[in-house]
Every structure is written in structure tokens, then in C-alpha cells.
Design a protein around this nucleic acid. Structure first.
Lengths: 106, 106
DNA sequence: ATCATTGTGCGACTATTTTCAAACGATAGG
DNA sequence: CCTATCGTTTGAAAATAGTCGCACAATGAT
């Protein structure tokens, strides 16, 4: 039995306002940018300097809005973009947002 | 002397997080959808049922984030999308967002 | 078994956002 | 001039969001 499981919205439950809100936060947008570059990533790499509870807060929000998929791996948790689902639901959105975001790291 | 003037960010000052935030609010997203359909619109048409101060709040936020252009016309104020500027800055963004937003009115 | 590490949940606090009423200034029309 | 209409500003209240310390559960390693 899986120790930690994560709820994810189905593709057709992904709503534009929630996605935009999730991406409107610079911290989270940086996370998404990193995920787009690296593929699946250990959650801690998304914010090595952040308090853990803050990191959980943001990754949960990204997950609940349908932007990322989360799975437990041992005691870590691995995160990856739901880029195919997002592409199916809102074609071009992710690419456009990331293309328009040539900013500094965090 | 112009009675009411409005400040607008220059094209290169338009920032993705602010635009996404502006569009993440259902009320404002509906306004943008209406603007995309109708072109320039009397501000009051964007929210006939809203208190005026609430309407001002949202239109100001859309203006300050670079999504709309506002001009005074007599005692009204006319609003239009900065679709060309947005297209130049974030190609495809507006179209993608609006395409993915086939929702109810407000 | 013990211990260090990881993510989560809770609770509190702060900051931001949304909403709206009231007062004001400007405009158009009589 | 007087009045009605519109937008803005201000201020306040409520709701929402972000941050983080702490305790806890689960995991992996010794």
C-alpha cells in the first residue's frame, strides 16, 4: 500500500483561472521553468533554500491546479510537469508563458 | 488639459507574472473575453452590476498590468485590449488563454 | 532499534487582494 | 446654475494567500 498518495485533477477538471493563478507567482513560475528544463525533479531541488512547509505549500498548489504530477519515491517526492495534459487542454499555453519568461533564477 | 489621464506600462515593462495574475481572476477574465469580442467598450458594460469602485479596481489592475488601454471619453471611460502589444510581447498568450476559456458569463 | 532525513499537517502570523460604501471632482444636459 | 451621471479616491472590512515553526509519520541507513 502506497504510503503517500497524491490527488490530481483530471484533464477536463483543469481550469484556466487556477492554472494562471498558479503560474502568476514568481516562485512557482520558477519551479515550472526548472521542471520544463529538467523533466522530473526531486521536490527539494525546486527550492533548496525554502522551508519545507513552504515548499509543500507551493508544490501542492501546483499539483491541485493541474500543472504538475507528483509521486512519492522513498521519502522524497518527485515532481514533473503535466505538459502533455496541459498541451491537450490549453494548446500552446505553457510554451508561450515560458517563452515570455526570460528572468532571473531563484 | 486632459481631465483624466491614465498611466500605462510600456510594452517592455509588461511582466508575465502580473499579466497571468490579472487573468487569473474570473471577473477580470470575463472582462477580457468581452473586450476580445467587442473591441473598445464602455467600462460600465464590463460590469453593469458591480459597484463602481469595484469596477474601477479591476479595470485599474488590468491597465496597470498592461492588459488593457484606458482612455477618458467625456465622463465615461473606454477600455480596449492591448492585444497587439500583448501579441508582440507574449505571442499567442491571449489567444491561448481565451481559447481555453469556454465558460459561463458573469 | 536507533537515528537522521524527508514530506506533510497544523496553527499562527503577516501580507495581499477583494469588496464596497461614502465623499469628491468632473462632465453633460437642461 | 443646477442636477444627474460617471469615475476615482479613500478608508475599512472581509476573504484569500504566503510564510514558517513545530510536531508527526514514514523511510532509509547504520
Amino acid at each position: 500500500m502506497p504510503p503517500r498518495t497524491y490527488e490530481h485533477p483530471a484533464i477536463d477538471e483543469i481550469a484556466i483561472p487556477r492554472v494562471l493563478f498558479a503560474l502568476s507567482e514568481p516562485l512557482r513560475l520558477n519551479m515550472v521553468r526548472m521542471l520544463a528544463e529538467r523533466g522530473e525533479v526531486d521536490s527539494i531541488d525546486l527550492g533548496p533554500d525554502l522551508p519545507r512547509s513552504t515548499l509543500t505549500h507551493h508544490t501542492s498548489l501546483l499539483r491541485e491546479s493541474g500543472v504538475v504530477f507528483v509521486r512519492a519515491e522513498g521519502r522524497k517526492c518527485m515532481i514533473r510537469l503535466r505538459d502533455e495534459d496541459l498541451e491537450a487542454r490549453f494548446p500552446g499555453l505553457l510554451g508561450t508563458v515560458l517563452a515570455g519568461y526570460e528572468d532571473d533564477d531563484a
